[in-house]
Design a protein around this nucleic acid. Structure first.
Lengths: 222, 222
DNA sequence: GCAAATTATGAAAAACTTTTCATAATTGTT
DNA sequence: AACAATTATGAAAAGTTTTTCATAATTTGC
């Protein structure tokens, strides 16, 4: 992992660098805000750690500039200040998290992991028990097979997955997937569920969508 | 937004509920960990707030159980403890964030917003200069409009975006987007570029795909 | 076990997407 | 400016997806 450490206190910066290196991560130190902004604009980092108080540009300013330019890199702010207004500012500036000084490397590391987990989780693939769902490709995948879902099948499955374990009525499904106030004169939900079930069966050899008579359907991944 | 507040101190719980309601959010209070787990398993919440110290099950235990069952709902832990080990535990348990008691509603609210922002934005959206591209929906969006791309248009645009600034030959495009060894007897690339250009023009009022005569096409977002 | 309600399914119809093809417009070269 | 090559475009043809509809199968309560 490539980390940018923006911190003017060289003692802290070097200590962080050493600790990150023990975790097999590579880091680059920027000694002021301006340098940090330049580096982050030129090099692709996996994580940016910004000290709040720095010469030339504060961490908050660097963070805002990066977000304005559309950079999505995970950012953690280090702040020596403990008052609430600043914490609120930090989170509203587009930073993903902040750590209050003084902190142990252990605490920073836990926050880094949490932030990275969030970024990874919100990735393009939802890993389900019996298959992976590739969001941007609308593709069901397992080790050997790969099945393309139609638009409606995909949206239906996504709705089921985000509400796994809950009974979803046909009205609810129609409203959320088809975005129509449900009009009982159609059985489009049943028809699409039939097609989705067929593809889910093909990939998982299971019936993952259970019918609850009179109430609706439940998606149960187990 | 539907919020679950798990907090045994009724005074705190009711104060949170009142504050959330002022922000037009609906909340349900669970007075112990067991209740919280049951509610979260039955009802679909947009956010779960768990007090650390609760009768029957601690917030941490509720959090772990929910994550084990595959629930992806955003979770924020409230902790009265300030020692590092617990903060680390909190983030490693699958919670998205934690707030240390005592806290102001303002601080909790900022954290809620940060957590929700992360869940919503995630990496499902590529923010381009003149529009957003929603990957899973194959949708071009700006403030006012929303245009659906067909599968091929989407894959073509994604290929252009990931290779912005580079001239891409028709052979390259055909090989990467259509996954066919190119067979010069078709003008499918030109045809699809025409349609994609029309939609990009509609959303951005610009010709973002430039033709380089004899060489190919370049996507230039500026 | 029967009747009423509900859900499942195959197939036709309607609506879209993708591809092809013929022709028009543009570009670079001489 | 004229030409040859390349790219753009409208429209038809082929292929998919979405929706509808009629009928079959299943479930629940009596």
């Amino acid at each position: 992992m490539e980390i940018l450490i923006a911190e003017d206190d060289l003692q802290i910066a070097l200590s962080l660098k050493k600790n990150f290196e023990e975790e097999k991560n590579h880091s680059i130190i920027a000694e002021d805000g301006q340098k940090a902004l330049e580096l982050a604009s030129q090099i692709r980092f996996d994580l940016v750690i910004l000290d709040w108080r720095m010469p030339r540009l504060t961490g908050l300013e660097v963070c805002r500039h990066l977000r304005e330019k559309g950079h999505k890199v995970p950012i953690i702010l280090l702040t020596a200040l403990s008052d609430i207004a600043n914490k609120v500012d930090a989170l509203n500036s587009g930073a993903d998290d902040y750590v209050t000084k003084p902190f142990s490397f252990e605490e920073l590391s836990a926050r880094v992991k949490a932030v990275m987990r969030r970024y990874e989780k919100s990735s393009d693939v939802i890993e389900c028990a019996h298959f992976d769902l590739v969001l941007s490709d609308h593709l069901l995948k397992n080790g050997s097979k790969s099945i393309k879902l139609s638009d409606k099948e995909f949206e239906l499955l996504r709705y089921f997955i985000t509400n796994r374990g809950f009974i979803l009525s046909k009205d609810q499904i129609a409203e959320n997937v088809w975005k129509i106030k449900f009009n009982l004169s159609t059985n489009i939900v049943e028809a699409t569920i039939k097609n989705l079930r067929k593809k889910l069966e093909e990939i998982s050899n299971r019936n993952l969508i259970r019918t609850v008579y009179g109430e609706g359907y439940v998606y149960t991944p187990d």
